Amino acid sequence: MPHGSSTGEPQLLDVLQALADPVRLGIVQELAAGDERPCGAFAPQLSKATRSHHLRVLREAGLTNTRNVGTRRLVSLRAAEMELRFPGLLASVLEASDRVATVRG
């Protein structure tokens, strides 16, 4: 359950908890590498319900935005908003994740 605030601004604990999950971190990495994508394009190995859960957690933490276009739901990373609220955080997490993946790979 997100901690949130009455201002609707992302809260640090919510963002960190959302990024701590490997599936959600992978979704954020994919979004950071490009533009918005359809919800179904992420984590194809997961059930639709599980994927929806992960996308909801990211959205509620303030990391992503979802918009409806016809019958499609498109997800985008709120990188600019994250940078304003938590300067350097998202870039640092993504860079550290890339380093870990390189070491493991």
Rank of each mutant, 00 (worst) to 15 (best):
M1L: 04
M1Q: 06
M1G: 10
P2K: 01
H3T: 05
G4F: 01
S5C: 02
S6T: 06
G8F: 03
G8K: 07
G8I: 04
E9K: 04
P10A: 00
L12V: 02
L12S: 03
D14W: 00
D14H: 00
V15P: 01
Q17P: 01
Q17C: 05
A18F: 00
A18I: 00
L19G: 07
A20S: 15
D21H: 02
V23F: 01
R24I: 09
R24A: 07
L25P: 03
L25A: 07
L25V: 02
G26W: 03
I27R: 02
V28I: 12
Q29I: 15
E30P: 02
E30N: 00
E30Q: 03
A32Q: 08
G34C: 08
D35W: 05
E36V: 09
R37D: 08
F42D: 00
A43E: 13
A43R: 06
P44F: 09
Q45H: 14
L46S: 06
K48I: 12
A49V: 14
T50S: 14
H53C: 04
H53A: 04
H54Q: 11
H54T: 13
L55P: 03
R56L: 15
L58K: 02
L58A: 11
R59H: 14
R59V: 10
R59E: 12
E60Y: 02
A61V: 00
G62Y: 03
L63R: 04
T66L: 10
G70E: 08
G70Q: 11
T71H: 14
R72G: 09
R72D: 13
R73T: 15
A79S: 14
A80I: 07
E81A: 15
L84I: 11
R85D: 04
F86P: 12
F86S: 10
P87K: 02
L89H: 11
L89P: 11
L89S: 11
L90H: 06
A91D: 14
A91G: 14
A91P: 12
L94W: 07
A96K: 12
A96Q: 15
A96M: 12
S97V: 04
A101E: 13
T102H: 12
V103H: 10
V103E: 08
G105L: 06
